[in-house]
Amino acid sequence: MSAHEQELHLGHQFEDLKQQIESYTIGMWIFLVTEVMFFGGLFTAYIIYRAKFPEGWVHGHHHLDWRLGGLNTLILLTSSLTMALAVRAAMLNKWKPQVLFLVCTVLLAFGFMIVKYFEYSKKFREHIVPGPLFAHKDDPGQELFMGLYFALTGLHGFHVLIGILVISAITIRTINMRRMRQDFIPVELVGLYWHFVDIVWIFLYPLLYLISK
């Protein structure tokens, strides 16, 4: 190892780096479990209301454009690939490709948010946002569908935003701080988070955009 590489930070509570790494990894997985339960509450509501209002779901999903949803799925899957490659680069101690892939991931995430912005603004223009101004007041199933659509995609979008912030912070730190370049743990953890955000979307896309008939 070259001489300029400094020692990694070991928390005072840990005995060695292995213990530290394993603790962080398990902590992240448990955090993801809490996220599963968090979205799980909404998915439960989705299942129950879809069974109650099958018609409303079919009518409601016509307000969504499956092409835009598909585009966003493509974007997120690609960003998962770049994220995985960034983690790989970090593990192999190649910080330049790591930064490159992280930047790609952030750009793709922005792309996702831009598509989302156009989708949302269209719905506000057409008054298919739940509330007193909802255009199809006679169809409660449709309004519930749109309510769940906004709750689910809104929370998911919020997670994407958090991801953008954290990935950007790590990218900047990797560029500016030599010491950070050795430490693949932050990249690996945010990678796990990012893949989880991708998985949520993998379910949201067919559940919201691809309802037959």
Binding site: T44, A45, K52, G131, E143, G147, L148, F150
Partner: peptide, 17 residues
């Protein structure tokens, strides 16, 4: 805040949920 109706029986929601 937004009256999405998810727990409001008047809007089709189910308070028991």
């Amino acid at each position: 805040v937004a009256h999405i109706g998810i727990f409001d029986p008047a809007l089709g929601g189910d308070p028991i949920l």
